[in-house]
Design a binder for these strands. Structure first.
Length: 806
RNA sequence: GCCCGGGUGGCGAAAUUGGUAAACGCAAGGGACUUAAAAUCCCUUGGGGGCGACCCCUUACAGGUUCGAGUCCUGUCCCGGGCACCA
C-alpha cells in the first residue's frame, strides 16, 4: 500500500476559502450573466450568540442547491446580508448597556467569519445590512411611496402593547396573547399608529397563492392567516331609525336571531343606550378596556355582557330583539356587531343560557342536538323558507332581504392592516414631518435618509413615545412644504418592512442613487429559488408579497411576486425544544467545524433526516460522514497514484458503470428536490460499490467528485485538483446519465404465490413477462406452492415482482 | 373547537407514490491485522420457531378495499405545528 496524504480538513478548507476569494470564484458577472439564477436564503438576524446549528442547517441546504444549480451551468448569484434592526438587537444592547450601533457590527463580524468558515458560496461584494443608512434610505423611500399611494395611514387604534419591551406589536407578533420576543402578557392600548393597507390586497394575496410554487404547508398557513369568510351583511333597524349592520356567515339562520350583540367599543353604543342603563354600560365598558388582551381573548372565557336597554328589529321576523354589548364580540372583525343565533352557535348559546335569553331552533338536522352548527340541515321556524336546505337558503334569504335593502353579500377577511409603527429606537425613522398647517408631510426624497441619530439614552419608556422624542435637535425640523417649524415622526418602522424588499437590493448594492437598478432587476428578479423557515410563513413572506404587489402596481417592478418558488426547511431542535439561549440548549457549530471540518459537518446536518422536515440535533452519527469522505479521499489518491488500474480484471467495470449512471440519476433528482439525505445515501452506495469492485478508471470517480461538490465543496475542490484538473470543480458540468446504462444489468425480483413471497429471482432488467414466467414456473420453491393448480391470474411488474394467483 | 403534518428495528431514517419493509448511516456483538490500543477491513444484527434447505409474525390500534397495503378508505389512540370568543 502506497502512502497517501492524510485528509486534514482544517488546512484544506482554509486553503480553498482563500482561493475562492482570490479568484472571485463566487462572484458572477451581474450584468452579463447568460443564465442568471438568483439563489436566495432568508438572511439572518445577527444575534450575539453567533450562528447556531439551526442557521447552519438552513444555510447549508440552500447553499447546496445554489452550488448544484451552478454545476448545471447557471450563473448563480447567492448573496447574504443581515437583518440587524429590531427589538431583539435593541433589547440585547439594553441589557449590555451598549448602543446597538456599536454592538451590532461586532455581531455581524462574528457571523461573517462563521459564514465564510462553513463554506457558503456567497458573493460578498453584495453583502448588505438593513441598518446601513444606504439601505434604510430606501426602506424609507418605500414608506413614502405607500404614503403617496394612500396605502399608509395613521389612526388611533387598540394595539397590542408589550409592557416589558415597551412597544406596540403587530398581531403576528403576539403568540397566545404574549409577546413573541419576551413572553410577557400583552396589554391593550390606544395609540396613534401607522398602518399599511394590506387588507386592500387581501383578495389578491389569497388568489395569488394559487400561482406559487411553494411548500404546501406554507401556502396553507398563509391561506388560514388571510382567513376568507363568505357571508352577508344584514341590517337590524332600531325604532329611532339607526341601522345596525352585522356580518354573518350564516344568513340562513337569521330567523333564529333572538338578540344582537355589539362590541363594547362599538360607536353606536352611547347613542343607543337607554338612560337607566347608562351607568351599567359605562362600568362594563371600563371593565373591558382595563382587561389585558390575554384574559379577554385567551384566558377565562366565561361570557360577560350587559343589556343596553334598547331594541332592534330582526329583518326576517320583524320582531324587536334586545341589544347587548359583550366582549366576546370584537370591534376589529366584521362590523363589530353580530346577530346572535343561540340555537346554532356555541358562543351565542353559552351567552343566551347564562343571561336567560330566548333560544329558537331554525335548523333541523337528523340526530344532532342543540346547538347544532351544521350546514347540512334544513330550515324550520323560518316562515316562507321552511324545508329549504341550509346551503340553498343562505342565498335565497339574502336575495329576499336585499330587495328591502336589508342585506348585502359580503366577503370578510381575518387579515388586519399591518401596524408598522414601533415606539423604539433601533429602526429606520418613519420619514414624516408634522406641520401645524400642512399636517403629515413626507420627507422629500432628496433629504433621505432620515438618519437615526446616535443617542446615549435609547431606553424606551412607558409614555408610548419613542426615545427619539427626547432629542430636540433631531425632533424639530422644518416643514418640507411651507418651511414652518415642524416636528418629526418619532416612531421607527417594523423590522418586517426592512426584510420585505431586501431581495430587490442585493443585486443593486453598488448603486447609491436608486433602490434597485432597472436593468439588474430585470435580469435577476424575481428570485429563482427561496429557502427559509416556516416560522416566517405569515410574517415576512406575506409582507414581502404585499410590498411587491404595491411596487408592481406603482410601476417600479415588472412582477408582483417576489418569490415564485419557495421551500420551507425543517426546524432543528434540541431535546425536543427550539434552541434558545434561555433554555440553554443552543448548539454552536464552531466546535464541530473545528473538530470535523465544515465539509463533514455540512454533510452530516443534511444526512440527519429530510431537509424539509428537520429534527432533533444529535451528533452520534457524524463519524459516518467522515468515514465516507475519507473513503472518497482514498479512492482518488489511489487512482492518482496509478493504483487500481488493474481493477477491471475483477470484471466489475460494467456493473460499476451501470451503478454510476443509476447514482447520477438518483442524486440529480434528489438534489433538485432538496432530498439531500437520500442523495447522500446514494453516493455512499456508489462508493461502497467502487470499493467492492475496485474502480478501474478515473472516469468512474470524476462524476462522483462533481456530485459531492455541492455537499462538501472544499474536499471536492482538493480532490478535483489531485485528479489533475486546473480549474475549480465548480467550472465543471454536473454529470448526465445514460438511461440505457442506468437501466441495464440484472435485478432481483420477488416471486409471490397468492401474494405471499415464496422465492427471489435474478433476471436482466426489462425482461418480458413470458420469459420470466417460464423461469418462475420451473422454480422448485414455486412449484411446491402452486401444487399443480391452474393459474387464475398472473401479475407482473417489470423489474419488481411476479405474483401467481391460483 | 377548527385546519394541517406525523407515528416504521436499540437509534437517525429509506421504501420507485399500491409491488421483495427496514436501503444508507450510527450503535452493539464476533473475527482479522497489531506486543497493545487507535485506525482500518470482514461477518452478524426486527421478533419468534426449527438440526436443517425453510416456516410463522411484524410499519400506533381495530376494521375494510385489493392478487398484493407502511402507502388507499372508515373509526380510535398518541405526538408535533398553525389558527382561535373571527360571527
Amino acid at each position: 500500500m502506497r502512502n497517501i496524504p492524510s485528509y486534514d480538513p482544517q488546512s484544506l478548507e482554509a486553503k480553498w476559502q482563500a482561493r475562492w476569494a482570490e479568484r472571485h470564484t463566487n462572484e458572477p458577472d451581474l450584468d452579463r450573466a447568460a443564465r442568471p439564477f438568483y439563489n436566495l436564503m432568508m438572511f439572518p438576524y445577527p444575534s450575539a450568540e453567533g450562528l447556531h446549528v439551526g442557521n447552519m442547517f438552513a444555510f447549508t441546504g440552500a447553499d447546496i442547491y445554489g452550488r448544484f444549480k451552478r454545476l448545471q451551468g447557471y450563473d448563480v448569484f447567492e448573496p447574504i446580508g443581515f437583518d440587524a434592526f429590531g427589538i431583539h438587537s435593541e433589547n440585547y444592547a439594553l441589557q449590555r448597556g451598549i448602543n446597538p450601533a456599536e454592538l451590532i457590527p461586532q455581531n455581524i463580524a462574528t457571523f461573517r467569519r462563521q459564514l465564510r468558515q462553513f463554506g457558503g458560496m456567497y458573493d460578498w461584494r453584495h453583502e448588505l445590512s438593513t441598518t446601513d443608512p444606504a439601505y434604510y434610505k430606501w426602506t424609507q423611500w418605500i414608506f413614502i411611496q405607500l404614503f403617496k399611494a394612500g396605502l399608509a395611514y395613521k389612526k388611533r387604534a387598540a394595539v397590542n402593547w408589550c409592557p416589558k419591551d415597551k412597544t406596540v406589536l403587530a398581531n403576528e407578533q403576539v403568540i397566545d396573547g404574549r409577546c413573541e420576543r419576551c413572553g410577557t402578557a400583552v396589554e391593550q392600548r390606544f395609540l396613534d399608529q401607522w398602518f399599511f393597507r394590506i387588507t386592500q390586497y387581501a383578495e389578491r394575496l389569497l388568489d395569488n397563492l394559487g400561482n406559487l410554487d411553494w411548500s404546501s404547508s406554507t401556502v396553507l398557513l398563509q391561506r388560514n392567516w388571510i382567513g376568507r369568510s363568505e357571508g352577508a351583511e344584514l341590517i337590524f333597524e332600531t325604532p329611532s331609525g339607526k341601522q345596525i349592520t352585522v356580518f354573518t356567515t350564516r344568513p340562513d339562520t337569521v330567523f333564529g336571531a333572538t338578540y344582537l350583540v355589539l362590541a363594547p367599543e362599538h360607536p353606536f353604543v352611547e347613542e343607543l343606550t337607554a338612560v337607566e342603563q347608562r351607568s351599567t354600560v359605562k362600568t362594563y365598558q371600563r371593565e373591558v378596556q382595563s382587561k389585558d388582551i390575554v384574559s379577554r381573548r385567551v384566558g377565562d372565557r366565561t361570557k360577560t355582557g350587559v343589556f343596553i336597554g334598547s331594541y332592534a328589529r330582526n329583518p326576517a321576523t320583524g320582531e324587536a330583539i334586545p341589544i347587548w354589548i359583550a366582549d366576546y364580540v370584537l370591534m376589529e372583525y366584521g362590523t363589530g356587531a353580530i346577530m346572535a343565533v343561540p340555537a346554532h352557535d356555541r358562543r351565542d348559546f353559552e351567552f343566551a343560557t347564562q343571561f336567560k335569553l330566548p333560544i329558537r331552533q331554525v335548523v333541523a338536522v337528523d340526530g344532532e342536538p342543540l346547538p347544532s352548527v351544521s350546514e347540512e340541515g334544513t330550515l324550520v321556524n323560518s316562515g316562507p323558507f321552511d324545508g329549504v336546505p341550509c346551503r340553498e337558503a343562505a342565498g335565497k334569504i339574502v336575495t329576499w332581504l336585499a330587495a328591502r335593502n336589508l342585506a348585502t353579500p359580503r366577503v370578510q377577511y381575518r387579515l388586519h392592516d399591518w401596524c408598522i409603527s414601533r415606539q423604539r429606537y433601533w429602526g429606520p425613522p418613519i420619514p414624516i414631518i408634522y406641520c401645524e398647517k400642512c399636517g403629515a408631510v413626507p420627507v422629500p426624497e432628496k433629504d433621505l435618509p432620515v438618519e437615526l441619530p446616535l443617542i446615549e439614552d435609547f431606553r424606551p419608556d412607558d409614555t408610548g413615545v419613542s426615545p427619539l422624542a427626547r432629542h430636540e435637535e433631531w425632533y424639530f425640523a422644518k416643514c418640507p412644504q411651507c418651511g414652518a417649524q415642524g416636528r418629526r415622526e418619532t416612531d421607527v418602522s417594523d423590522t418586517f418592512l426592512d426584510s420585505a424588499w431586501y431581495h430587490l437590493r442585493y443585486p443593486s448594492t453598488e448603486f447609491p442613487d436608486r433602490p434597485f437598478d432597472a436593468a439588474r432587476t430585470k435580469k435577476w428578479l424575481p428570485v429563482s429559488s427561496y429557502i427559509g423557515g416556516n416560522e416566517h410563513a405569515v410574517l415576512h413572506l406575506l409582507y414581502a408579497r404585499f410590498i411587491c404587489m404595491v411596487l408592481s402596481d406603482l410601476g417600479f417592478v415588472h412582477f408582483d411576486t417576489p418569490y415564485p418558488k419557495f421551500r420551507a426547511h425543517g426546524l432543528i431542535v434540541k431535546d425536543g425544544a427550539k434552541m434558545s439561549k434561555s433554555r440553554g440548549n443552543v448548539v454552536v457549530p464552531d466546535t464541530y467545524i473545528q473538530q470535523w471540518g465544515a465539509d463533514t459537518f455540512r454533510m452530516y446536518l443534511m444526512f440527519l433526516g429530510p431537509f424539509q422536515e428537520g429534527g432533533d440535533f444529535r451528533d452520534e452519527g457524524i463519524v459516518g460522514i467522515r468515514r465516507f469522505l475519507e473513503k472518497v479521499w482514498a479512492l482518488v489518491h489511489e487512482r492518482a497514484a496509478g493504483a487500481g488500474e488493474g481493477a477491471a480484471a475483477k470484471g466489475g467495470n460494467d456493473v460499476v458503470l451501470q451503478k454510476l449512471h443509476r447514482t447520477i440519476r438518483k442524486v440529480t433528482g434528489d438534489t433538485e428536490a432538496l432530498q439531500y439525505n437520500t442523495a447522500i445515501a446514494a453516493m455512499m452506495e456508489y462508493v461502497n460499490e467502487l470499493r467492492e469492485h475496485g474502480a478501474g478508471s478515473t472516469e468512474l470517480v470524476k462524476p462522483l467528485i462533481v456530485m459531492v461538490a455541492p455537499y462538501a465543496p472544499h474536499v471536492a475542490e482538493e480532490l478535483w485538483e489531485v485528479l489533475g484538473e486546473k480549474q475549480s470543480v465548480f467550472q465543471a458540468h454536473w454529470p448526465s446519465f445514460d438511461e440505457r446504462l442506468a437501466s441495464a444489468g440484472d435485478v432481483e425480483i420477488a416471486v409471490q404465490v397468492n401474494g405471499k413471497l415464496r422465492s427471489r429471482l435474478v433476471v436482466p432488467r426489462g425482461m418480458a413477462q413470458d420469459a420470466v414466467l417460464k423461469i418462475v414456473l420451473s422454480d422448485e420453491a414455486v412449484k411446491k406452492f402452486v401444487d399443480g393448480q391452474p393459474l387464475k391470474k398472473v401479475i407482473y411488474v417489470q423489474d419488481r415482482l411476479v405474483n401467481l394467483v391460483v
